[in-house]
Amino acid sequence: MSSDYDPQHAPAGDVGAALMMIDSRLKAIHDGKAGVDPEQQLLIEQFAASLGPKGANDVLDGACTLVYMFTTWLRKAHEEHGKDVIEYVVPHLVASLRMMPKSVRPEAIPTMAGLVIAAGTGLSPSLWRRQYGEWTEEEMNPLEATAFLLAEHINRIADNPDFATRLVTDALSRADGR
């Protein structure tokens, strides 16, 4: 049975820009720069300001597409071992988000868990979220953190710090080659 929230009905958004932001955060962490590099933060803010409303919405949709792609990969990996992605990934994600009180307000955590649960059940995170209204400013950092944490989880499972990024770039390359 088809749903209005199926991924084929959702805009992919600017996956490349969303991936660039997540990849830069992953690289900063792996390079030992646990804090936010002020120069990098300034570049990200300038980039975000240059997007305009449509561009910003495209990056939001792109981040949701990343959440969907990462969760789909995690679902398949967990199913190979007879495990449920929601049971194993969502509690870890929630616990990690709770440890980020400066970036993630507690009231945003249920929404981020909902995005991952939607993706884990085969629904589009962006369409699922839209039914509750417009994105809020308070949800921007949590959305980025959610995509980052899912990517980092994949990288740890694969024992490769670039695996999640490569997973997406390979999928984008295949899509462009059609």
Rank of each mutant, 00 (worst) to 15 (best):
P38K: 12
F47T: 04
H92Y: 02
A56P: 00
M99T: 06
L43F: 14
V104P: 00
D31P: 05
E45F: 07
L60S: 11
V89H: 02
M69V: 14
I22K: 02
I22S: 03
Y88H: 14
R25N: 09
V59F: 04
I22Y: 05
V89R: 02
L97V: 07
L74D: 01
A56K: 06
F70N: 02
T72W: 08
A34N: 10
H78L: 13
V104E: 00
G55F: 14
Y88D: 12
V104R: 00
A34V: 15
C64H: 13
S103R: 13
S96A: 08
D37Y: 04
V90T: 12
G62Q: 15
C64A: 08
K33S: 12
P53C: 04
I44G: 05
V85D: 00
D23L: 15
R105D: 14
D84N: 13
E87W: 01
V36N: 09
K27E: 05
P101V: 12
K83W: 04
G55A: 15
E87M: 03
L26A: 03
M100L: 09
R25S: 12
G52Q: 13
H30C: 06
S50E: 07
R25A: 07
I22G: 02
G32A: 01
G62W: 11
A77G: 01
P101M: 10
Q41T: 06
I86H: 01
A28E: 01
D58H: 05
A77C: 06
P38L: 09
Y68W: 13
L51P: 03
A49M: 08
G52C: 13
T65K: 04
T65V: 01
L19K: 01
K76A: 08
L97K: 01
H81K: 04
N57W: 09
D31E: 13
F70P: 00
V94L: 08
E87T: 10
I44L: 08
A28C: 02
L66M: 05
L42K: 14
L93M: 04
A18G: 14
A56V: 12
M21D: 00
I86L: 12
K27H: 04
L19H: 03
V59W: 06
H92S: 06
A95C: 02
K83H: 02
